[in-house]
Design a protein around this nucleic acid. Structure first.
Length: 324
DNA sequence: TTGTGTTTTATTGCCTCC
DNA sequence: GGAGGCAATAAAACACAA
């Protein structure tokens, strides 16, 4: 925009702008009265000029300056002269409200609309364009802030869930440890019982052996049993011994359950080895432990106790892909 | 009153589209 | 190549605490 055009006519100024109160204590005056006559030239290197001198030291209404674009002034000498009093002028509340409403309708500005707005508001089309440009920038910033808040909220929510899951995991781990310890303790107690009975019943075992032999030979007669009993050095309470011997024979081959947990009676085995498979051990645990974990959608649902290790790092990455 | 931080207006340079 | 958009930035205007 070259040339020396001067904004000298306020006839285009919309009635809206007249007698307005400017945003922060500026006194507005009827705009027409503030427009200079055609013989009063404006000079300046920029689009805005200070009119403090013109207005008796007070700030005059900005509106009549708004149409003054630096590109329209080519006088360098006068530009230098006015440079020191060069000021930016803010738009009035009414102008801003008008522009805001227009922005709400459409945040892009077609040339026709720009021209009309400029005409209605008494601004240069360029000023309107600049205002829309800056307004779009502010809107974008606000949108970014909103998006950030939204994402931050989602992140915090997910993090809370994750923390809760970690606590649940720890709780379940402790539960597993407690149950494992309980099972081991009960196994140990079962061993101790057998040791004591072993001590007390060495001679009983001899008798048992005889009785088993007798039975296995198919001689389950009363005489055989009595003879077997007679092999026992203790001849007292023969019938009672026979009964207990039978009972022990049966007991030593029967599975024993304690608190619903299978405890293998291994009194006659040289070395105890658990016959309870890992699967059986897991089956002894409350079912919700695993269903709960699977609900979390871990990549490797724990089928065995050996896989009952959380791949924490990996899962954390899966949950928070953006946090690393 | 003054220093400082924020907001608003405007410029500049680059890019894209027609 | 001109028009228009955008990001970055400058600078005036403004708010506010000390």
């Amino acid at each position: 925009m070259a040339g020396g055009s001067v904004f000298t006519n306020g006839s285009n100024m919309n009635i809206l702008l007249q007698n307005q109160q400017t945003p922060r204590g500026y006194t507005s005056q009827p705009l027409d009265s503030l427009f200079l006559s055609s013989s009063a030239p404006f000079f300046g290197s920029r689009s805005m000029l200070s009119f403090e001198d013109v207005d008796g030291g007070k700030r005059c209404n900005r509106s009549f300056l708004n149409g003054f674009d630096m590109d329209e002034n080519g006088d360098d000498g006068m530009d230098e002269y006015f440079h020191q009093s060069e000021k930016k002028r803010r738009l009035s509340i009414d102008q801003v409200q008008f522009l805001e409403k227009s922005f709400e309708v459409e945040n892009k500005l077609e040339p026709e609309r720009k021209t009309k707005l400029a005409k209605d508001l008494g601004l240069q089309p360029r000023q309107v364009a600049i205002w829309f440009q800056n307004r779009r920038a502010r809107w974008k910033t606000k949108q970014l802030e909103k998006d950030y808040e939204s994402l931050h909220h989602s992140y915090q929510s997910l993090q809370t869930d994750y923390d809760n899951l970690l606590k649940e995991k720890d709780r379940l781990k402790a539960e597993v440890a407690r149950l494992t310890e309980k099972v081991a303790r009960e196994k140990q107690e079962g061993k101790l019982d057998e040791s004591e009975s072993e001590k007390n019943g060495l001679k009983e075992s001899v008798m048992k052996k005889s009785m088993v032999d007798s039975v296995s030979e198919g001689e389950g007669s009363k005489v055989s049993i009595v003879e077997a009993c007679n092999n026992n050095n203790n001849n007292n309470n023969k019938i009672e011994d026979i009964s207990s011997a039978r009972s022990d024979i049966l007991d030593c081959e029967s599975p024993r359950y304690t608190d619903g947990v299978l405890v293998r009676n291994d009194a006659f085995e040289p070395e105890y080895q658990s016959d309870i498979s890992q699967d059986e051990e897991e089956n002894l645990l409350p079912p919700y432990i695993f269903t709960k974990l699977e609900d979390v959608n871990y990549s490797n649902p724990p089928h065995t106790s050996s896989t009952y290790q959380f791949q924490e790092e990996e899962d954390h990455h899966a949950l928070w892909p953006w946090s690393y």
